[in-house]
């Protein structure tokens, strides 16, 4: 094992797969010599050149559609959208074209592409550069949706996404780019199959179902409760679509108490889906309390740092929500 950052893990996943498969091309705004807005692709332009690492015009719609068209004709493109907020500009090509072209053409097309994009608040970038829009894409059949929380998961899940024959929206977490974690040596290639949740901490009293940046925060809360003798299980969903329903249901049956946590606005958030996955199943009969949701406040992400920090689930809010379940 080695310790690398989340950003390096993503870079390694792309670079290693690009060395193996010439059909992988990478396009996005300022991903070349600049290395991407968050420095994720540093060194890739130098290694793979202008043919395979393409700086694009600032045109999110056509970048996404270009990737979809290239995917339908034999390539395996990766697209970087500089901020996940800008999938709003790419949405037509993503939701109406990439996601549907296999189904609507009777199975004639495959669209093996990955759209990578950083989501989340915490950088002071305010309303238009801080959103968590995963629910928008989870609602479109034909897309897969992945949000990794550690360098290990980021590398393994990105490789699986690149090897998948469907359009995958891979939402990275801005605030995790510099976070470090253990990953296997470069020689020890690995993938993490899509559709498998990960129990990041085993516990028997309460289940927290979460993903992305909120995984670490939930783990910290869990450690604090441990000293009180409350044993919290933390499930990192990792792949929102397809969802590992089994894992959630089994954990709910075990603990009987479930809290769903995510940074995205609560109303219409994916947490509703996670909660009802449990409530809709036979785990319902094992529950000792209503399944609780804790999402971000239903407001745009504000600029002021104190406000920004308070509109998403904080340790205090997660702690309070757990207490309500006990």
């Amino acid at each position: 094992m080695r310790t690398i950052t989340y950003a390096q893990a993503i870079n390694e996943a792309m670079s290693e797969e690009m060395r193996k498969d010439e059909n992988i091309v990478f396009m996005g705004e300022d991903i070349g010599v600049y290395g991407g807005a968050f420095g994720v692709s540093r060194g890739m332009f130098e290694e793979f050149g202008d043919d395979r690492v393409k700086d694009t015009p600032i045109s999110e719609l056509v970048i996404t559609g270009c990737a979809a068209g290239a995917a339908m004709t034999g390539l395996r493109p990766i697209v970087e959208i500089m901020f996940s907020d800008f999938i709003t500009l790419a949405m037509e090509q993503l939701a109406n074209q990439a996601a549907k072209n296999r189904f609507q053409f009777g199975g004639q097309a495959a669209v093996p592409m990955v759209l990578r994009t950083p989501g989340g608040s915490g950088t002071g970038a305010a309303e238009q550069h801080s959103q968590s829009l995963e629910a928008w894409v989870c609602h479109v059949p034909g897309l897969k949706v992945v949000i990794p929380s550690t360098p290990y998961d980021a590398k393994g899940l990105l490789k699986a996404s690149m090897l998948d024959n469907n359009p995958v929206v891979f939402i990275e977490q801005k605030l995790l780019y510099r976070s470090k974690g253990e990953v296997p040596e470069v020689e020890d290639d690995y993938i993490i199959p899509l559709g498998k949740a990960d129990i990041k901490r085993e516990g028997k009293d309460v289940t927290i179902v979460t993903y992305g940046r909120m995984v670490q925060r939930s783990l910290e809360v869990a450690e604090k409760f441990a000293s009180e003798g409350v044993d919290i299980e933390v499930i990192d969903v990792r792949t929102l679509v397809p969802l590992d329903k089994e894992c959630l249901i089994e954990s709910a049956k075990k603990t009987g108490k479930v809290l769903v946590v995510h940074e995205a606005c609560q109303t219409g958030g994916y947490g509703g889906e996670l909660a009802s996955t449990i409530v809709d199943s036979d785990a319902f009969f094992y529950l000792d309390a209503p399944v609780k949701r804790l999402g971000g406040l239903d407001v745009p992400i504000p600029y002021n740092p104190n406000l920004e920090a308070l509109v998403v689930p904080t340790e205090e809010k997660i702690t309070a929500a757990v207490r309500e379940l006990l």
């Binding site: 091309v25 043919d51 719609l61 056509v62 996404t64 559609g65 270009c66 990737a67 979809a68 068209g69 290239a70 995917a71 339908m72 004709t73 034999g74 390539l75 493109p77 037509e92 090509q93 109406n96 074209q97 072209n101 609507q104 053409f105 004639q108 097309a109």
Partner: peptide
């Protein structure tokens, strides 16, 4: 590579198909 129900929807896809051809 298909007809489109979205007015202008095929334009971006065409750039990708041509990108493949050039690549």
């Amino acid at each position: 590579l298909g007809a489109n129900g979205v007015v202008g929807g095929g334009l971006p896809i065409a750039t990708g198909a041509a990108f493949s051809q050039k690549y």
